[in-house]
Amino acid sequence: MERRTFLRGAAIGGSAIAFGGTLTHGAAYAAPAQNGPSPYGPLGSPDSNGIRLPSGFTSRVVARSNQQVPGTSHTWHRAPDGGACFANGSGWIYVSNSEINPGGGASALRFNSSGNVTGAYPILSGTRQNCAGGATPWNTWLSCEEVDRGYVYETDPFGVNSAVRRDAMGRFKHEAAAADPVRQVVYMTEDVGNGCFYRFIPGTWGNLASGTLQVLVAGSGTSGSYTWATVPNPSGSGTATRDQVSGAKRFNGGEGCHWAGDHVWFTTKGDNRVWRLNLTSSTYELTYDDNLVVGGNAPLTGVDNITGSSSGDLYVAEDGGNMEICLITPDEIVAPFLRIDGQSSSEICGPAFSPNGSRLYFSSQRGTSGSSSGGITYEVTGPFRS
Results as ranks from 00 to 15, higher is better:
211 G>N: 13
211 G>F: 14
211 G>M: 14
211 G>E: 11
212 T>H: 10
212 T>W: 09
212 T>A: 08
212 T>G: 09
212 T>K: 15
213 L>I: 13
213 L>K: 11
213 L>H: 10
214 Q>G: 11
214 Q>V: 13
214 Q>T: 15
215 V>D: 01
216 L>G: 11
216 L>A: 15
216 L>R: 15
216 L>F: 12
216 L>E: 09
217 V>A: 02
217 V>H: 04
217 V>G: 02
218 A>D: 01
218 A>G: 05
218 A>Y: 06
218 A>S: 12
219 G>P: 02
219 G>Q: 01
220 S>F: 02
220 S>I: 06
220 S>E: 03
220 S>M: 01
221 G>V: 02
221 G>L: 01
221 G>S: 12
222 T>P: 00
222 T>R: 02
223 S>C: 06
223 S>W: 07
223 S>L: 00
223 S>Y: 13
223 S>Q: 14
223 S>M: 04
224 G>T: 08
224 G>C: 06
225 S>F: 01
225 S>M: 00
226 Y>W: 08
226 Y>L: 04
226 Y>N: 05
227 T>I: 14
227 T>M: 04
228 W>T: 13
228 W>P: 12
229 A>M: 12
229 A>P: 14
229 A>Q: 15
229 A>V: 14
229 A>E: 15
230 T>V: 15
231 V>C: 04
231 V>R: 04
231 V>H: 05
232 P>K: 12
232 P>V: 13
232 P>M: 09
232 P>Y: 10
233 N>H: 11
233 N>G: 00
233 N>S: 13
234 P>V: 13
234 P>S: 09
234 P>D: 05
234 P>K: 12
235 S>I: 07
235 S>D: 11
235 S>P: 06
235 S>A: 10
235 S>Q: 07
235 S>K: 07
236 G>Q: 05
236 G>R: 08
237 S>P: 00
237 S>W: 03
237 S>A: 14
237 S>N: 11
237 S>L: 10
238 G>M: 01
238 G>C: 01
238 G>V: 06
238 G>P: 03
238 G>K: 05
239 T>H: 01
239 T>W: 01
240 A>L: 08
241 T>Y: 02
241 T>D: 01
241 T>F: 02
241 T>A: 11
241 T>W: 02
241 T>P: 11
241 T>G: 00
242 R>C: 11
242 R>T: 14
242 R>S: 15
242 R>D: 07
243 D>Y: 10
243 D>W: 03
244 Q>A: 07
244 Q>L: 08
245 V>Y: 03
245 V>N: 02
245 V>K: 07
245 V>I: 15
245 V>C: 04
246 S>N: 12
246 S>A: 15
246 S>L: 11
246 S>E: 02
247 G>Y: 05
247 G>N: 06
247 G>Q: 06
248 A>M: 08
248 A>P: 11
249 K>D: 03
249 K>H: 13
250 R>A: 09
251 F>E: 02
251 F>M: 08
252 N>G: 09
253 G>Q: 07
253 G>V: 10
254 G>F: 10
